[in-house]
């Protein structure tokens, strides 16, 4: 059933970057994110945060969460330290209200920046 627009949860989209030795699969990253969030805030906190992995390509990705719990989601993302024994480090590039905004403002900007050191 359709939810009235005024009654919908307000959302935020967090663009993030993963640094790791090997590529982490989408499923593994989702598991780590949920593990980390559950370990920090418990089941109640997770239901309030409602984190969802929207897109992920092995390096950059977007996570959706509720507007009031962005700081908690950021902490949960930062607390991911390994995935199946591979150490990883994550950084939130920026927060936006739309997927388009998160992609254009943060991820595409990083992709444009990246090739520079290779040319030098």
């Amino acid at each position: 059933m359709r939810i009235l627009p005024v009654l919908r949860d307000k959302k935020r989209y967090l663009a993030f970057e993963v640094t790791s030795g090997q590529k982490i699969k989408r499923r593994e990253f989702t598991n780590e994110l949920h593990d980390s969030a559950r370990s920090l805030f418990g089941d109640t906190g997770l239901s309030e945060m409602n984190p969802h992995l929207i897109s992920y390509d092995g390096k950059y990705g977007i996570i959706r969460c509720t507007r009031d719990r962005t700081e908690e989601t950021r902490a949960a993302i930062a607390c991911i330290n390994n995935s199946g024994g591979i150490p990883i480090s994550t950084r939130v590039l920026g927060i936006s209200g739309t997927i388009k905004g998160a992609t254009e403002k943060f991820i595409q900007k990083m992709l444009v920046k990246e090739p520079e050191p290779e040319n030098k």
């Binding site: 640094t19 790791s20 700081e71 908690e72 950021r74 902490a75 993302i77 930062a78 607390c79 330290n81 390994n82 150490p87 990883i88 480090s89 994550t90 950084r91 939130v92």
Partner: peptide, 12 residues
């Protein structure tokens, strides 16, 4: 892999 950006440190 142990380093975190300042905003993440503040969030934790």
């Amino acid at each position: 892999y142990d380093l975190r950006a300042p905003r993440e440190m503040a969030a934790i």
